[in-house]
Design a protein around this nucleic acid. Structure first.
Lengths: 233, 233
DNA sequence: AAAGGGGGTTAATGAAAAGTTAAAATGCAG
DNA sequence: CTGCATTTTAACTTTTCATTAACCCCCTTT
C-alpha cells in the first residue's frame, strides 16, 4: 500500500505563527504548504492537490470566507477548516455557510488541531496510514496476540498455526463487521476457488473450537456473503 | 426521492437541558432520542440505528468516553460528538482517542451545533452507497442494511436471504412509489414468466411477515400493476 | 352471482453452501 | 531419512435457500 503524506494547504497571514503551525504539522506526518494570503492561497489550490485546507478568516487581499467559497466552486469535497481569532459567532456561521467543516479558535492548540485533522481525514479516507495494523485484541475473555500467535484464556495459552492466526487476525481487524468470503480468500489464500474455500471452512471450524469457551464471542456466517466475528460487550 | 430524517442519539444527564436540545434539533428535521445516562444510552444504541451520537462526557453510571469506546467497538463509522462542560483539554484528547469526530463546549450554542451536525452528515451521508444506490433505510421502526442484509427492530436482528434482501432493497429504493411486477422480475429474477412470478409472490409474503410489527410499513398490491411499499411517517 | 384469473400464504422439495471430522499430502527441522 | 506440525483434500452431515406445488381468497367482469 502506498504511503503518502496527507497534503495540507495552510493560508495564514501571520508569517511567524504560520511557520510554527507548519513545522508542528510537518513533524506529524503531514506535508504543509503555507501561503500568506487569500490570493496566493487560491493560486496554490489551483495548481496543486490538497487533502485539507486550513484558512485564516482575517486576511489581507482576500479573506478566508471568500477563498473557501471559491474553493468550493471547484471542489465540493476537500475538507476546509477556519482559523478565527476571536469567538466571533458570525464568522463561524459564515464559514459553515461557505462550506467549511470546522473551525479552530486562536490561539490554536496544536494538539487539538492535529486531532481534528486526523478525525476529518479518517472520514475522507485520507487518514495517515498507521502502517502497522493492531496486533493485540481482546475477545471477551480471550486475548489474542497476532505476532506471537498466542490465544490466551484465563492463563491457558494456545499457540495458533500461521494460517489460523492470519484468519483470526483478519476477523479481529474487522470485529463486528462483515468480511466477504472472497476477500478472506484473496487476502490469505491468494486464490478463490472451490478448494481454497473448503480449506477456509476447515480453519473456521478450528477457530470456532478454540473460541467456544466464551459464548460472547462467535463467528457468524452470512450465507453466500461472508463472516462476521461478533464480540458482545 | 424520499428524504429520511437523520436519527440522533443524545445522551445527556441534565434532563431539562437535554430536552431543550432535543426540541431544538427536532424542529430542524432531526429525529432525536434522548437518554439520561451512559447505560441507557448504550442500550438505545444497541437496539436502534442512529446517524450520529452526541454524548455528554460527565455522566453518572458510565461517562461519555467509555460509552464512545463501546460504541466504536461495534460501529467504526457512526459520527460521535462530545459535550464538555469546561475547556478541559484532557477530556477532548481522550474523546478523540476514543474515536470521536468533534466536541462542543457547554454552554452549547445550538446554532453552531446544528452546523457541526450538518457538516459531518454531509461527509457521512454520501457514504452508504454502493454504485449509486443507497444502502441503509429507515422503515418506520425498522432499519434495513442492504449490504449486511440485516433487518433490525428494537435490537432484534433478522438476517434476510439474498433474494429477500434484493427485493426489499428494490422496494426501499422506490419507497412510496409503484414498482411494476414486470420490472421487479426483470431486475431480480432476470426472467418474466409464471414461475418467477409465483416465486416473487412467495418472497413478498416473507417480507410482509418480517415487517408486520410496525403497521406504518406495508407492502401494497395494486391489482394487475405492481407493488408499493408504503411507509407512513 | 358466477367464473376466472391474479394474488396471498404455507409447506414440500431438491440443490447448493457451509460445518465437521478424518485421512492424505506437504513441508520442514533435526 | 524420520518425525512432527501444518495444510489440503476428501467424505459425510447439517443448514439454508430458491423454487415448485397446493390450496386459499379476493377482485373484476359479465
Amino acid at each position: 500500500m502506498q504511503e503518502r503524506k496527507p497534503r495540507i494547504l495552510l493560508v495564514e497571514d501571520d508569517i511567524s505563527f504560520g511557520k510554527i503551525l507548519k513545522d508542528y504539522l510537518s513533524l506529524n506526518a503531514f506535508e504543509v504548504m503555507h501561503m500568506k494570503d487569500g490570493v496566493d492561497g487560491w493560486n496554490a489550490f489551483r495548481n496543486h492537490h490538497f487533502d485539507l485546507c486550513v484558512l485564516d478568516i482575517m486576511m489581507p487581499k482576500r479573506d478566508g470566507i471568500e477563498l473557501a467559497e471559491q474553493i468550493r466552486k471547484e471542489n465540493k469535497t476537500v475538507p476546509i477548516f477556519f482559523l478565527t481569532s476571536k469567538t466571533q459567532k458570525t464568522d463561524m456561521l459564515n464559514g459553515y455557510e461557505a462550506g467549511a467543516d470546522d473551525y479552530i479558535i486562536k490561539p490554536v492548540d496544536a494538539d487539538i488541531l492535529m486531532h481534528k485533522i486526523k478525525a476529518i481525514l479518517k472520514r475522507t479516507g485520507e487518514a495517515p496510514r498507521e502502517g502497522n495494523q493492531p496486533v493485540e485484541f481482546q475477545l471477551g475473555e480471550y486475548h489474542f496476540n497476532f505476532t506471537s500467535r498466542m490465544l490466551t484464556l484465563n492463563g491457558e495459552k494456545q499457540v495458533l498455526s500461521p494460517k489460523e492466526a492470519e484468519l483470526l487476525h483478519l476477523l479481529c481487524c474487522n470485529m463486528n463487521q462483515l468480511v466477504k468470503r472472497e476477500d478472506i480468500l484473496r487476502s490469505i489464500w491468494k486464490e478463490v476457488n472451490y478448494f481454497t474455500g473448503r480449506s477456509m471452512d476447515v480453519y473456521l471450524a478450528k477457530l470456532r473450537k478454540y473460541l467456544q469457551h466464551d459464548e460472547r464471542v462467535s463467528i457468524i456466517n452470512l450465507h453466500k456473503s461472508g463472516y462476521l466475528m461478533e464480540v458482545k460487550t
